[in-house]
Design a protein around this nucleic acid. Structure first.
Lengths: 136, 136
DNA sequence: CTCATTACTTGTAAAGTGCAACTAATACGC
DNA sequence: GCGTATTAGTTGCACTTTACAAGTAATGAG
């Protein structure tokens, strides 16, 4: 299939647009950081930096920013004092939930005009693709 | 369906990763600009800036950068001298083709382990979704 | 001809990025 | 243990990216 390139670029752009429009007051990258922290229980800096695919030095500064915004807390890990564990504050968790709610609403809106079968097919296909793409 | 959020974030991240890894020496945004120019015949600055969803002032500077890299040319439009028409240089076109080739290869690699039916289903689903999402 | 509008550029300031070099804590070899 | 290597994270720096505000130049409207 040779139409994969236009589909790739267009889908990429739409998804980025949805994500950006769903974030109020924070950047897409910062939203991704909140999301990755929410997925794990008290992850370390390294863990999350790797998960969002960014340099640890840039990440360190982003965490500083998110801490100033009172969305994230950094707590020293008692078992190894080089390590800081990250968690969302109540405010951070609320924001994370709100962003995902807006994203979900936008996606569901796009799926709304499909019949049940098509909607299920599209969702399952996205899932299949996502699994295949995970890990490049 | 409540699994839409993990799928959204993971797919988004994978596609961004693929795009980034396919770009050598230019940023994802710059690659998107090259791609949008390649889609149209001699588009104006405004047209492309809108297509990639970026501020015209930022766009103007990015075009300056791409011109310095000899990937894009800006030619005055004779019918209206406020307007500049954009086109890819040979080098720019080559790079655009190369990036899309790498993206296509990575996507096809992910699709390779599916049977024909599943592959077609996934591709058609991406297309359907892309059409529904276009225009947010 | 004058004034509003349009297409694009430039000033400036802030945010984002990553390499190199740093500090501090832990692990390893002996 | 003790000294060295490694690991987690931070900071200095330089460069890129971004967008608002203000500017220039060309076109359109009355």
């Amino acid at each position: 299939m040779d139409k994969i390139i236009p589909i790739f670029h267009s889908l990429s752009k739409s998804m980025r647009g949805i994500h950006k429009a769903s974030c109020d007051n924070i950047s897409i990258v910062q939203s991704s950081i909140l999301y990755e922290i929410s997925l794990k229980k008290k992850p370390s800096m390294q863990t999350v930096a790797e998960a969002v695919g960014m340099d640890i030095t840039t990440f360190s500064r982003q965490i500083g920013t998110l801490e100033k915004k009172e969305l994230v807390t950094r707590t020293p890990y008692e078992g190894d004092r080089r390590i800081y564990l990250l968690s969302l504050t109540g405010k951070g968790s609320d924001m994370e939930v709100a962003i995902n709610g807006i994203i979900a609403a936008k996606m569901e809106n796009a799926l709304a005009s499909m019949n049940d079968f098509e909607r299920e097919t599209v969702l399952r296909s996205m899932h299949v693709l996502e699994v295949k793409l995970r890990g490049n």
